[in-house]
Design a protein around this nucleic acid. Structure first.
Lengths: 210, 210
DNA sequence: ACCTGAACACCGTTCAAGT
DNA sequence: ACCTGAACACCGTTCAAGT
């Protein structure tokens, strides 16, 4: 009866649910407190700051990706796909994750495993670190753009206004963009991602070539 | 004497200067108004919203990259380097640019030129669009991580606390991360970026292979 | 150990009113 | 056409006080 109302885990879970509903711009400590039926300052007993809470959210977001390591025949790209899927789980998930150099458990586990695979593939230490950084930076950038794209055009399909823009006189100066408008606006993100993974697989498979 | 105090351009310039000083978190319409010796609501006569101002800032940030097209022998990667340099010019520049699907003049000029080069290199339309998206997503993700890294470790070198962390017992579970700590924390971002460009140049140079 | 009430120092934005 | 004053509805965070 007189048990705690909330703990760190329940705050993180509620924060992720709230994130998914209102996005990173709409997420506030006050509304989060209200959802948890608690006063805002209470959250500061459990987390030092909103930023610290975002660190914990980032760690929780990628947790599901860790399972991909355990699949039979899992390689760097299996986990890359799982990492992308994890970032896409919650609205603005990639933006929450981006730029947090927090040595959180899940980040370390994923990083260690990824690095191990790159080294086993025959990359020298420095090269392996570069590829690790570049691949994760790419996935994060890719997912930020992908999520923002879907926020701008929720249908998945471009709206009439945008299509009209590409056909307007302004685009006489940009014939290729105009010609490829359909491809630009309704291209498959899955396909794009695979194109990139193909590149990485070539680069990592032939480390001597780069 | 009775001339306008400010216009769109002077607001954007002041906003970029402010961004560079206080970062994206610290940038507010009120402090920007104060710098311009104007009341905050005045800004809303020139821009519909803070987001609209950020759109204009994003466009201004990449303006210098357009010059790279005109260099003799400029290729996709010349402009990729210039694009990165432009994003790095102002603090949090990459974060300001990320995710804005605004058809602003500089974005269109850069996109058209980039697309033209990819098509000339022999890529089919869909593939060219994928590569354009992937390359720009990579550069944006790379620069976000690069800038956040330098905000966290301003010296360019890891601090003692971070180095100690990598040597702590917690990292017994992560032997590769521990072993490559120096490479992770003081690796060259220029070098990393070139590693990635090499990959793209192979993929674009041999379109049939992907 | 965990939570609240009240407060501080801010935000973005609107809108009637001024010139 | 351009700018201000006043206000609305918020923020993150601190801190003394409660249980």
């Amino acid at each position: 009866m007189s048990q705690r109302k909330i703990d760190r885990n329940s705050i993180v879970m509620a924060a992720l649910a709230a994130l998914d509903e209102v996005g990173i711009e709409g997420l506030s400590m006050r509304m989060l407190a209200e959802r948890l039926k608690v006063q805002a300052p209470t959250l500061y007993w459990h987390f030092a700051s909103k930023d610290a809470l975002l660190d914990a959210m980032a760690d929780a977001i990628i947790a599901p990706a860790l399972d991909a390591r355990l699949q039979e025949g899992a390689d760097i790209f299996t986990v890359a796909r799982a990492f992308r899927a994890a970032l896409l789980t919650y609205r603005d998930g990639a933006q929450v994750f981006a730029g947090r150099y927090e040595a959180s458990e899940n980040v370390l586990v994923l990083g260690e495993w990824w690095l191990d695979r790159l080294v086993r593939a025959g990359l020298e230490p420095d090269k392996a670190v570069h590829q690790l950084f570049n691949l994760s930076a790419f996935i994060i950038g890719f997912c930020i753009e992908e999520q923002r794209f879907h926020e701008k055009w929720p249908e998945g399909k471009p709206d009439q206004e945008t299509l009209a823009l590409f056909r307007s006189s302004r685009f006489e100066k940009f014939p290729l963009l105009a010609a490829y408008a359909a491809s630009l606006l309704s291209g498959s993100f899955d396909e794009r991602f695979e194109v990139a993974l193909q590149m990485y697989s070539q680069a990592i498979g032939q480390p001597g070539a780069a």
